[in-house]
C-alpha cells in the first residue's frame, strides 16, 4: 500500500510541476517518500491477483457515479430554471450497510458529489442522513443504489488486515 501511495504522490507532483528533468524526478520522489513517512498509511495488503477485479469494479463505480452526477445535474438545472421551483426537499436516512468506515465515508462522498443530495450527518451504524432536493422515489430505490455502491466499494478497497 505504501509503495502505491509513494507512486501516486510522485505522479501528482510530476503532473503539477509538468517537468520531467532528472532533478525534478528526484525531488518529487523525495517529497513522496517524506509525505508517506509523515502520513503513515495503514498497511493494507494489496494482492496482485485482486487488481484486475478492483480495476473492473473501479470502472463500473466511475460509470455509476458519472451517470448519477449527469442525471442529478440535469435535474437540479431543471428545478433551477422552472418558474414554479418544483422541489420536494426532505432528509432521508440511508443505511450505508458497509462494515468499514472508509466505505461509509466514500459512499457519503459519492452521494454528496451527485447534484441533488447532500449527506448532513452520519449517525450510528453508518446511517447517512441525506438532504435531497426531490423525494419522488420510494426509500427502497435509495437503499438499492446504496447497496450497489457498497458492493462495488467493498471490491475496490483493499481488505483490512485480520
Amino acid at each position: 500500500m505504501q509503495l502505491w501511495m509513494i507512486f501516486g504522490l510522485w505522479l501528482v507532483y510530476l503532473a503539477l510541476t509538468s517537468n520531467l528533468e532528472f532533478s525534478n524526478l528526484v525531488v518529487g520522489l523525495l517529497i513522496a517518500l517524506g509525505l508517506t513517512a509523515l502520513l503513515r498509511p495503514s498497511p493494507y495488503p494489496l494482492r496482485l491477483q485482486r487488481i484486475p477485479g478492483m480495476a473492473w469494479a473501479l470502472l463500473r463505480y466511475g460509470i455509476m457515479v458519472g451517470k448519477d452526477v449527469f442525471l442529478g445535474g440535469l435535474q437540479v438545472a431543471r428545478f433551477t430554471l422552472d418558474p414554479k421551483l418544483p422541489i420536494h426537499p426532505a432528509v432521508i436516512a440511508i443505511p450505508s450497510g458497509a462494515e468499514a468506515e472508509l466505505a461509509t465515508a466514500l459512499s457519503a462522498h459519492t452521494i454528496t458529489l451527485s447534484p441533488g443530495a447532500v449527506v448532513i450527518e452520519i449517525g450510528e451504524q453508518g446511517m447517512m442522513y441525506t438532504h435531497t432536493l426531490d423525494v419522488t422515489m420510494p426509500d427502497e430505490a435509495y437503499f438499492k443504489m446504496q447497496r450497489q455502491r457498497r458492493d462495488l466499494l467493498t471490491r475496490i478497497l483493499p481488505s483490512p488486515p485480520t
Binding site: P89, I92, T112, E121
Partner: peptide, 29 residues
C-alpha cells in the same frame, strides 16, 4: 462534496431550519 457536507452539517448543528421539508428523518436527533 466535503465542503458541501461541512456547511450542511454546520448549518444543521447551529439550528438553521429546513424550508418546506416533506420529511425529516434527522428530527429525532
Amino acid at each position: 462534496p466535503v465542503t458541501a457536507h461541512a456547511l450542511a452539517s454546520a448549518a444543521y448543528r447551529t439550528g438553521i431550519p429546513f424550508a418546506r421539508p416533506i420529511r425529516d428523518d434527522l428530527e429525532h436527533l
